[in-house]
Every structure is written in C-alpha cells, then in structure tokens.
Amino acid sequence: MGQRLLRLEEGLAQFFLALTVAVIFAGGVARFLGRPLDWAMDLATFAFAWCVFLSADVALRQDRHLAVELLTGRLSPRWRLGLRLFSLLLMALFLALLFGYSLQMAYLTRFRSFQGIPGLSYTWVTLSVSVGSLLLLLTTLGRIRQAWRAWREGPCS
C-alpha cells in the first residue's frame, strides 16, 4: 500500500478538480456561443464529489482538518494521548459505518440517473463516498496504531 496508493489518491483528486474546472468553463463558453452543453452541470458536480471525498483524506493525512484545542492543550501528555486515542476510535467507527452504508446506498440508488446525463447512474457518484470513507478509515487506523504504540510505551518514557 503506502506511497503508491497515496500518490494515486492525490493524483486522482487533482484530476477531478481539473475536470470540474474545465467542464464549468467549457459550459459557460458554450452557452455564450449559443450551443449549451446539456451535461456540463452534472459532469462538473460528479467530478467535484470525487474530488471532495478523495481530498478529504489528503487533508487528513496533512493534518489540515481543524480542531479546537481549548481544553486538550492544558492536559497532561498522558491524558491528551488517551483522548486522542478515544477520538480516533470513534472516528474509525463512524467511517466504518459510513463505508458500509455507502455501499448499500450505491446499490439502492442505481435507478436514479443524472438529469443531464441520462446514461450515468447516480451509483457512480455515490461510490465516491465509499472510496473516500475507506481511505479516511485506513488513514485513521494508521493513526490509531501509532497512538496505541505511544500509549503502551507511555509510562516508560
């Protein structure tokens, strides 16, 4: 896993961002020229969903998600680590649930299609939540392992 997956994830997120922008721009220009693209709006939001849920994990890996550290900043390192472990476990539980139900949702929504792209089932965009939550779960599990190791070594150091 590791590096290859990481680069693939970032590359895909960037690709979908570029696609979003390109399609929105093309849609505006085409409409101005009197030949609007029926599919532009839907393809843009489709690509954006994939961009968001892949990027959510990129942001987590880079610790970009904001946290309020009012209380935790004043605790002893041991307590802080304990709270962190608790938070991470809860996050992992949430992400696991999200992953499971996103698969169910992807199946249930198979009849629904994008309005502007009748051939494209909504399942394909729902899967972005599945992939995103799975990646977030993997990252969180990695953090749990780190925190757990630190916890066990804690008293000695």
Binding site: V21, A44, T45, F48, A49, V52, Y101, V125
Partner: peptide, 23 residues
C-alpha cells in the same frame, strides 16, 4: 435509515452554486 447520512454528505457536493468555492 443510515443510508441517509451518505446521501446528505453527497448532496452538498451536487449543488452547482457551491462550485464557486473550489474554483
């Protein structure tokens, strides 16, 4: 059902007017 949180997360990204933010 717990599929609803999935739908709600997704639904925000499908709002065309919000695309001003990433761009």
């Amino acid at each position: 059902p717990l599929t609803m949180p999935v739908q709600l997360l997704l639904s925000e990204t499908q709002n065309f007017s919000l695309l001003a933010i990433p761009t």
